[in-house]
Simulated scan of single mutants.
Amino acid sequence: MSSLRLVSRLLQLLLGLFLFGIASSLMIRAAIGIAPWDVLSQGIALRSGWGFGAITNLVGVCVLLMWLPLRQKPGLGTVLNVLLIGPSAQLGLDLLPAAQGLWWQLLLFAAGLVLLAVATGLYIGARFGPGPRDGLMTGLHARTGWPIWKVRTLIEACALAVGWWLGGNVGWGTLAFALLIGPLCGVTLPLFDRQPRATAAAPTA
């Protein structure tokens, strides 16, 4: 692999992770419901008094520790995912005001949802390893033999339930996220995939 290609992939990874955090902050500021893992981080942040970004990092570390009994191996993308998404989400929250009025809320949420799908395609397409949550999903799938959809649904349902109990924002946006993020990522993942089509391996998420 040429050094230029490696640098290009690294820049794609970093851009994807930065935009992922910004996308989360857009949906949070829309205040009509957020993604299950963000509900969990927001709920813990509300109860602890810590910033959302710091809690996002902490949750990522905890999820990564769950890889140990599953014998999953993190990649560079996995580690940077844990370190970088929290700060970029906190930056977005510090810069963005809360949406005023339903139309602005819908616009912010839609922008965040689309941007998150693009960010997911970028960081996974760079092929430096899955995020901690995706690795937990594939690890449990390998250990239990359960279908991917069942494992992912169980994990995200648990995160959502705990986050909602702690006070995280669950709403119509949460349902919209669950229904739309899959099809949107179905577009962005192949669009930004850096693996040549002739030798493409299975997706990492």
Rank of each mutant, 00 (worst) to 15 (best):
residue 85 I to D: 03
residue 103 W to E: 12
residue 32 I to G: 03
residue 50 W to I: 09
residue 74 P to C: 10
residue 149 W to G: 10
residue 24 S to M: 15
residue 110 A to K: 02
residue 89 A to M: 15
residue 7 V to M: 13
residue 46 L to M: 11
residue 88 S to P: 05
residue 145 G to Q: 10
residue 85 I to E: 01
residue 119 A to Y: 08
residue 30 A to C: 08
residue 198 A to K: 11
residue 176 A to E: 01
residue 141 H to Y: 00
residue 104 W to D: 06
residue 203 P to E: 10
residue 153 T to A: 14
residue 90 Q to P: 04
residue 4 L to T: 12
residue 56 T to S: 14
residue 27 M to S: 12
residue 39 V to E: 03
residue 111 A to P: 00
residue 28 I to L: 15
residue 177 F to L: 11
residue 100 Q to N: 13
residue 54 A to M: 13
residue 157 A to C: 13
residue 165 W to A: 15
residue 20 F to R: 06
residue 150 K to G: 06
residue 26 L to C: 12
residue 50 W to M: 14
residue 129 G to E: 03
residue 200 A to Q: 15
residue 169 N to R: 11
residue 161 A to P: 01
residue 112 G to R: 02
residue 178 A to H: 06
residue 165 W to V: 10
residue 168 G to P: 00
residue 109 F to H: 00
residue 35 A to C: 00
residue 117 A to H: 01
residue 156 E to Y: 05
residue 194 R to W: 10
residue 168 G to F: 04
residue 204 T to R: 01
residue 38 D to L: 07
residue 77 G to D: 00
residue 68 L to A: 13
residue 3 S to E: 14
residue 13 L to M: 05
residue 101 G to E: 07
residue 87 P to S: 12
residue 173 G to N: 05
residue 19 L to P: 02
residue 17 L to W: 02
residue 181 I to P: 05
residue 111 A to N: 00
residue 71 R to N: 10
residue 22 I to Q: 09
residue 87 P to C: 10
residue 47 R to L: 13
residue 73 K to W: 13
residue 149 W to S: 15
residue 103 W to A: 14
residue 115 L to S: 08
residue 169 N to F: 00
residue 166 L to K: 07
residue 164 W to V: 11
residue 25 S to G: 07
residue 104 W to P: 01
residue 56 T to A: 10
residue 10 L to C: 12
residue 152 R to A: 07
residue 173 G to K: 00
residue 55 I to D: 02
residue 120 T to W: 03
residue 157 A to G: 13
residue 205 A to E: 08
residue 126 A to C: 10
residue 178 A to T: 13
residue 3 S to N: 11
residue 191 L to R: 07
residue 53 G to N: 06
residue 35 A to N: 07
residue 140 L to Y: 08
residue 35 A to W: 01
residue 198 A to L: 09
residue 19 L to R: 06
residue 89 A to H: 04
residue 97 P to V: 08
residue 202 A to N: 09
